[in-house]
Amino acid sequence: MSAEKRFTKKTGLLGYSQEEIDAAGRKLPSFDFSTSSQHLGKPILVELGLIEPSPYQTSELSEEKIAELVENLRHNQLSSPIVVRRRADGALEIIAGRHRWEAYRRLGRSEIEASLRDLTDDEAERLVFFDNLLAPSLTDYQKYLGFSQRKRSKGFTNDQLAQEAGVNPSVISKLMSFEGLPESVHTVLKEHSSAVGSSLAPALVEHAVINPSLAIKAIHHIVAGELTQKAALDWLKAGGEEKPLFSVETHRATIRSGKKKYAEMSLRQKRMIINLVDENEATVVYAAIEKLLQELGEARR
Results as ranks from 00 to 15, higher is better:
K143H: 13
S36C: 04
E68A: 14
Q38K: 15
L181C: 09
Q269D: 15
S37T: 07
E111Q: 05
V167A: 08
K190A: 12
E206C: 05
D140V: 07
F178C: 08
A103R: 13
K154T: 05
G108L: 04
R100Q: 13
W101E: 15
S198L: 08
E102A: 05
L107D: 13
E183K: 12
L276G: 02
Y286V: 00
I95Y: 00
N211E: 14
R98T: 11
Q142R: 05
I51K: 02
A238W: 02
F130I: 13
K261I: 10
T8M: 03
A287Q: 10
A201Q: 12
R106P: 08
I255M: 15
T58N: 03
K65C: 13
E111L: 14
R85S: 12
K10A: 13
Y56G: 01
G240A: 01
K270T: 14
R150E: 11
L133M: 02
E242C: 04
V188F: 10
S170L: 14
D32Y: 04
R86P: 00
I44P: 02
V188Y: 07
V188G: 09
Q163M: 13
L189N: 05
L50E: 09
L181N: 03
L204D: 01
A165G: 03
L40V: 11
Y144R: 01
G180W: 09
Q38C: 14
E279N: 09
I274N: 01
F130W: 13
K230V: 11
S37Y: 13
M1D: 12
Q142V: 00
G25A: 06
T139M: 01
Q229W: 07
P43K: 02
E281R: 10
E290L: 09
R117W: 06
T187P: 02
P169F: 12
S173V: 03
W235S: 00
